[in-house]
Amino acid sequence: MDARQLWLRFEPYHDVTYFTPESRAATDALGCKGGWMGYFGMRAAPLGAASPELVEAVFYNFAPRMVRRALPDAWEVATPAEFLRARLEGVDGALRRLLGEGGVDAPEVAEAASLAREAALAAPPGGRPLAAANRALDWPEQPHLALWHACTILREARGDGHVAALVAAGIGPCQALALYAREHSLDPAYMRAARGWTVEEWEEVADLPGDLPSVEEATDRAAAAPWEALGETGTTRFVELMTPLALRIAAANEAMRVNPMALDPVRELAVPGWNT
Rank of each mutant, 00 (worst) to 15 (best):
A150I: 06
E11T: 12
G103A: 04
E240G: 01
P80L: 09
C32P: 02
L88E: 15
S114K: 13
G31I: 10
L154E: 04
L84R: 11
V199D: 14
L54P: 00
V215C: 07
W274G: 04
W36H: 13
A70R: 04
L47M: 12
A146N: 01
T236M: 12
T276S: 14
P46H: 00
Q142W: 11
T276H: 14
T17G: 05
G93N: 00
A193K: 15
E108H: 06
V16I: 11
M37P: 03
F62N: 13
W7Q: 13
M66Q: 14
M261K: 11
F238G: 02
A178L: 10
V163W: 01
A74I: 03
H149C: 10
L154T: 01
D92W: 01
A110P: 10
G172W: 06
E76F: 08
E216K: 09
T79A: 14
P21A: 09
L147T: 00
R192F: 04
W227Y: 14
G172F: 11
P143N: 04
A133C: 07
V109F: 10
L88H: 15
R267F: 07
L186Q: 15
A3G: 10
V199A: 13
D15R: 12
V91Y: 05
A70I: 00
L177C: 06
R192L: 09
A223I: 01
A136Y: 03
I153R: 00
R87C: 06
D220F: 07
E183N: 06
L269C: 06
H162L: 12
A45I: 06
E204A: 14
V77I: 13
G273M: 04
V91L: 08
D187N: 10
A26E: 03
A146F: 02
L8F: 11
E53P: 01
R128N: 01
P64G: 07
P188L: 12
G34E: 06
P64V: 00
A70N: 03
P21Q: 03
L137R: 14
R248V: 08
A225E: 15
F59G: 01
L269Q: 02
P173G: 14
A123S: 15
D2Y: 08
R267Q: 15
T79F: 09
E183H: 11
E111T: 12
D73N: 10
A225N: 07
A113Y: 00
Y18Q: 05
L84E: 06
A70S: 15
L212H: 03
P272K: 05
A81N: 01
P107F: 08
E254M: 08
W202V: 09
T27S: 13
P125T: 00
A225P: 04
A132E: 02
V205A: 06
A63E: 02
L179T: 01
A270F: 12
W227N: 05
A250K: 03
P52Y: 00
L186C: 05
E268N: 13
E183R: 13
A165F: 05
A81G: 08
D2K: 06
T198S: 15
A229W: 01
E156R: 02
A123Q: 10
L95V: 02
Y190A: 10
W197Y: 13
L241P: 04
A50C: 01
I171N: 03
A206S: 08
L208I: 05
W7D: 13
W202K: 05
L179R: 06
G38R: 01
G41R: 04
G231A: 11
P173M: 02
A250V: 05
A218P: 07
A122T: 09
